[in-house]
């Protein structure tokens, strides 16, 4: 642990510092948006958006390397595709009379497939692995700046519109009757979720996004009774999960994404067991 802190300060090990800072900054968005996702029960939508991100990354890399479009970065592709899929799912669930879970499943798979097809036709070596499973240790100074901006984009509306989001998540019909624009609020929430997912892809990768989005909030939900306190605890837990995962991954040379998810998952399972034990004990 001490060794790790010493390494953080080592200028030769700046990647470690950036990884650590990225995890810390992103945790704020994870905790807040994760709480909305868990309480509003839109985990499946979050999963679909995450997998669509691969589509965006694939198209962006294809354009960048085949047509020498330097501005067409994977990050840009990820942001555009995440927003696009969030809006499509939101509109479909509001207006189309389709089964929502079927639409979510379709977008989930199509996004991923499109990404794989474009990547197959992209020349050169692509580190697909790091997109799928994340690698926080690859974060550089520029990535960190993007993380900061995305974090702010998510946080500002989340804090300013807290009461509106709370009302729409708890009882959207009542909120509508009080004159709130519930469809717009819901779409905004989905877009904020999309931005948070883009942040997460760098850290745990597309496949494991759902874990980092829901587990801290789920654990926090067991110990808190109000939205803001659930968010605060979820932020703290995200911070603990990402940084302890980083330490373990650095120390024992293990992939960071899976370690973070295993720590978060283990904590969740322990919480559930603890709750069961308490319930049993209290009944007797």
């Amino acid at each position: 642990m001490l060794d790790f802190i010493r390494q953080l300060a080592n200028p030769g090990m700046s990647f470690l510092l950036y990884a650590f800072l990225t995890g810390a900054v992103a945790s704020v968005a994870f905790g807040i948006i994760g709480t909305y996702v868990v309480t509003r029960r839109i985990t499946a939508i979050a999963g679909a958006i995450a997998h669509c991100v691969l589509g965006g990354i694939g198209i962006a890399l294809y354009l960048k390397l085949n047509y020498q479009l330097a501005w067409c970065t994977p990050m840009l592709g990820a942001i555009v595709s995440a927003l696009f899929s969030a809006i499509v799912i939101g509109l479909v669930s509001m207006y189309a009379k389709e089964r929502e879970d079927t639409v979510i499943g379709a977008i989930w798979a199509i996004g991923m497939a499109v990404g794989l097809l474009f990547l197959a036709k992209t020349p050169g070596y692509i580190d697909l692995h790091s997109y799928l499973f994340g690698n926080i240790l690859l974060v550089n100074a520029d990535d960190f700046k993007v993380t900061l901006i995305l974090d702010l984009v998510v946080l500002v509306p989340a804090i300013l519109l807290f009461n509106n989001f709370l009302a729409v998540c708890f009882d959207s019909r009542f909120a509508e009757l009080r004159g709130l624009r519930i469809k717009l609020t819901y779409l905004l929430l989905l877009c904020m979720t999309a931005m948070t997912i883009v942040l997460m892809v760098t850290i745990v990768g597309i496949i494991m996004v759902i874990a980092l989005l829901t587990l801290p909030a789920a654990v926090a939900g067991y110990f808190t009774r109000r939205m803001w306190s659930m968010m605060a605890l979820a932020i703290l837990l995200s911070l603990v999960f990402t940084s302890s995962g980083l330490i373990v991954s650095y120390k024992w040379d293990l992939p960071s994404g899976p370690i973070i998810v295993v720590i978060a998952g283990g904590c969740y399972v322990l919480t559930v067991l603890y709750r069961l034990a308490v319930k049993r004990f209290l009944k007797k």
Binding site: T35, T39, L166, A167, C169, D171, F174, R225, S229
Partner: peptide
């Protein structure tokens, strides 16, 4: 849902 009674009643003032 993580809300207390005050949170819920205040929604009437939205």
């Amino acid at each position: 849902f993580p809300v207390n009674v005050m949170d819920v009643v205040l929604m009437g003032r939205l």
